[in-house]
Structures are given as C-alpha cells and as structure tokens.
Amino acid sequence: MSTEARNAGGNVVAPTDEGTCAEGAQAGPQADPRTVTDVAAGAVTDVTAGALIVVDGVSRIYPGETVDDSTHALDNVSLEVREGEFVSLIGPSGCGKTTLLRLIAGLDAPQSGSLEMAGQPITGPGADRGYIFQQGALYPWATVEANIATGLKARGVYKQQKHKIPQFIELVGLTGFEKAYPHQISGGMAQRVAIARALINEPRALLLDEPMGALDSFTRIELQDKLLSLWQDFGSTMVLVTHDVDEAIYLSDRIVIMTPRPGRISEIITVDSARPRARNSTGFLTLRSRILEKLHLVSERPEPEFAI
C-alpha cells in the first residue's frame, strides 16, 4: 500500500501539446526501475535519448458523402512516446485513439502532419512496430507454433532464429499447446499467442489495440500482469488503446485522454506510483475517479440523496 499517497494529486499535467513537453521531466523517475530490467535483458541501450515515436500535428479525416458528412477522426494531434515507455490512449468511441494507433503502425496515412519512428518518417507498416488486434487476428489454419513463427518467416530469418520459438511459447505460458489450432484455444490464450508472435520479432514498439476488450475480467487481469512482466523483460515501448480506465492506470506510465468530434488529446496524466500497483489503493481510486470525471463518465454533482 505504499503507492497510495503518491497518486492523490499533482498528477494532472496541462493538456495537449504543452502536456507532452512537460511530460519529459516527469517521466524521469519512472525510467529507473525499467532501466534496471532493460540492462538485465540487454534489449534497450538508449533509454535517455529523446522520443521514439513522434506524432506531430497529425490530422486524419474520413471523407463522407458531403463535406459536412466527413469525420475528423484526428485533428492536429501531437504526441511523443519515449523509448521504453508504457502509454495508454483512452477515450470514448470515435475519439480517434485507434486511428492514432493505426497511423503509428503505418496501416493508415494522415492527411496532414508527420509521424516519426526512431527518427525515420513512418511510411508503412514494419516489423519494428508490432501490432496486436482486439481479436488476436491469428491465422486460423496455422498452429500456435506456426503462428508465432510467422514473423521469422516473413523476415526470412526462420532458419537462423527458429530456436526462439519454444522460448516465446514458454514466455507466454503456452507450453503444451504448440500444436493446437486457434479454434481450440481460449480468447486469452489467443491474445498471448498474438503477443508472442509480435514479440519474437523484437519490435522496438508494441502497439496494442484493445487487446483485452473481448476477454472476461479474470482473464483480463491475468493478461495485464503478463503484459506488464513482458514489458519489463523486453523493455519495448508499449502504446495501448483501451476503454478500461483501471487497465490504463494499472499498466501505464502516462495516460492520454482523448475526446471525440474532432478527435483530440484533451489531457495527459502521468502515473508515477511504483509497480505492481494495488487496484484498491486510495491513490489508484482517486486517479480513477479523476479520469472518469475527465471522460464525463461520472456525474459531477454531489449526490446528497444517499447521505443520511
């Protein structure tokens, strides 16, 4: 329960662009535990450098029948994600969080603004940015093993690196299911296969689009812990799109709150308590109600009816 007090106040930073700048200073303390694990895993060498992902003034409009009909999925959005950072994008549907994630993945292109990954402009999808879909998107015709091997085959390094496959199966706790087909395993297992399939490529960033949205709450909590330990082991940068406020607080270094019509970043909140975080601590709950308020999901009026 040592985490309680820290979340209580002072986490909220000024909105949007300035927010990301101010963020840099605050993100410092969190880097420490991660640096230790990173050195141990030998994965990341350059934690102190600048942002890994830079989104600069990006707009994405989905054209409709008429001009009025078109959707401003993203309107002049800027965001920086540091190497090794865990960032969540949260907001109601239509706020453009998935669009932003797809732009970073290179699966979609913006009308204006620029996106950079490790100093290079993003022009299309690449193996340096793993992507996890809500439903796993496993190949139904391939076994767990073959699904995880896909990245190695696609990059032409299967022969040299196939020894990694059993390691990654073990890493996500699926030993014994190597030969199972996707329809034979549960949703939670499928997501773990998807994560292993992405991680075997050792991507610098892992982009997760509501990966736990379709899971029951027990499996969800289990997978959140798994994700956290994988992040600490691999040190890859995580960008998570989620609907779940608890999930965002439990996992993230920073939470990016977005609002719809047009899609904008309204606020960025730093979570600076140490992990693992207690879901029932006062700090956690205070932050939770703060975010819910921002998302207009709780009534702002006090409710005297319940007072006796």
Partner: peptide, 28 residues
C-alpha cells in the same frame, strides 16, 4: 479478413508473403 493482411504486414510480410502465406491458405 483485412486484419490478417494488416497483422502480417506489421510482422514484416512482403506482398509475395501475403499471397503465399495469407491469401492462399485462407482460400483453402
């Protein structure tokens, strides 16, 4: 499904790989 093409691309798949390892197996 579009997601299968997209996830393959994020795994480093070329267009040839998409044809041989995604589209054709899906058509079986």
């Amino acid at each position: 499904p579009k997601a299968l093409y997209e996830v393959s691309e994020t795994l480093g798949a070329s267009r040839r790989f998409l044809l041989l390892h995604v589209a054709i197996p899906n058509a079986m």
